[in-house]
């Protein structure tokens, strides 16, 4: 369905979070997870949301992506106010403007790598995305594993597929939730590199939720959360992007499937 009245306003920030509050009912008590959070993210900016466990990072990410309704405040994504939209309309906004990378990869187990990558484009009704999907998988170094199922791939490989999937619709903004949280250091580093590299190439706005400060410092800006509030919002000194060498050709070396690292 075309988003006629939801078209983004030109020049507006890609993400505008305004006085966002989220509370949950926990038995008889009300639990406030986020209080009065506001910030903007401009087009092409990279930013990290950091904070200790339970600080509200993931909740904030969910609200930014329209996965949940705020208790108060508003979220504008690509100039579209998500508040008045139905859940289905928000799903369409996501499909059009948003890419996702999850901590637990979240590939659909019954689809091959190639099919997983194509899902967002197919949902849009696009045809002829096969070549694009294949090219993306080759770009992340999985050109020879197109027809493998998630269970046949290592954790790092699964996250690469997820990355390719995130970029298939040429998103305006990419949300990454602890993208390396389930990977060992070496694989995690390789994935980080890929994220920033693909991001730079596509000019995508990037919002990463992480508790890994090293990763956060590679973005242009760090928003710190504590107890549901923004306690600091500072540039890292990195001018908008990472100062990293380009991604190496070919797959990053990882252990065999049996020895892949998994969360315990």
């Amino acid at each position: 369905m075309p988003l006629q009245q939801d078209e983004p306003r030109p020049g507006a920030p890609v993400l505008r979070v305004h006085r966002l509050t989220k509370t949950y009912a926990s038995g008889a008590r009300t639990l406030t997870v986020l209080r009065d959070v506001s910030f903007d993210v401009a087009e092409g900016e990279t930013c990290a949301i950091v904070g200790p466990s339970g600080s509200g990072k993931t909740t904030l990410l969910g609200l930014c992506a329209g996965l949940d309704d705020p208790t108060d405040g508003s979220v504008e994504l690509c100039g579209i106010d998500l508040g008045p939209l139905s859940e289905d309309a928000r799903a369409e906004v996501r499909n059009r403007y948003v890419g996702f990378v999850f901590q637990t990869f979240q590939l659909i187990p019954t689809l091959t790598a190639l099919e997983n990558v194509m899902v967002p484009a197919e949902l849009r009704g696009e045809t002829g995305v096969l070549d694009h999907a294949r090219a993306l998988l080759e770009q992340v170094g999985l050109g020879d594993r197109l027809d493998h199922y998630p269970a046949q791939l290592s954790g790092g490989e699964q996250q690469r597929v997820a990355l390719a999937r995130a970029f298939i619709n040429r998103p305006t903004i990419l949300f990454a939730d602890e993208p390396t949280g389930n990977l060992d250091d070496e694989t995690g580093t390789a994935i980080e590199r890929l994220i920033f590299d693909l991001n730079r190439a596509a000019g995508t706005t990037l919002v990463i939720v992480t508790h890994d400060l090293d990763l956060a410092r590679r973005t242009g800006r760090i928003i710190r959360l504590k107890g549901g509030r923004v306690v600091s919002d500072e540039p890292t000194g990195v001018p908008g992007a990472v100062q990293d060498e380009p991604v190496e050709e070919g797959p990053v070396e990882e252990g065999p499937v049996e020895e892949r690292s998994v969360a315990s």
């Binding site: 859940e87 289905d88 799903a91 369409e92 996501r94 996702f100 979240q106 899902v119 949902l123 849009r124």
Partner: peptide, 16 residues
């Protein structure tokens, strides 16, 4: 359910 949640994340409407 996880597959459904991912599809919803990627932009599938509940009807689809």
């Amino acid at each position: 359910i996880d597959t459904v949640a991912v599809l919803r994340c990627l932009g599938a409407t509940s009807r689809r």
